[in-house]
């Protein structure tokens, strides 16, 4: 239980940090920001990999199948999110760059 309280503490601090960070992002970058945070949310892949390791001891295949699906979904989220963010950010150009 004590660990749980500590984790909640971390959660609250991180949420406030997030609020500070995001408030400073200008509206013109909101779409790439969202694609990037979307990709970051794919970190749930860590939980899915832990789960697949746990499922190796299971008798039935259900845990394994669900974990594989979870990893695939999280990977799509990560790879896709970062790539589109990269694509969009590549389009934001300064005037000089454009004239070259």
């Amino acid at each position: 239980m004590e660990i749980f309280i500590l984790l909640i503490f971390i959660f609250v601090l991180a949420a406030f940090l997030g609020k500070e960070l995001i408030s400073k992002v200008p509206s013109q970058l909101h779409t790439p920001l969202m694609a990037a945070t979307n990709a970051i949310a794919g970190i749930t892949i860590v939980g899915a990999i832990v789960a697949i390791a746990d499922s190796m001891a299971d008798a039935g295949p259900l845990g394994r199948i669900l974990s594989v699906i979870a990893i695939i979904l999280a990977t799509i989220n990560i790879v896709g999110g970062y790539l589109v963010a990269e694509r969009m950010l590549g389009m934001f150009r300064k005037k000089e760059d454009k004239d070259k």
Partner: peptide, 8 residues
């Protein structure tokens, strides 16, 4: 990271 994205 979940908290960061949630706040965002």
């Amino acid at each position: 990271t979940g908290a960061l994205v949630g706040a965002s």
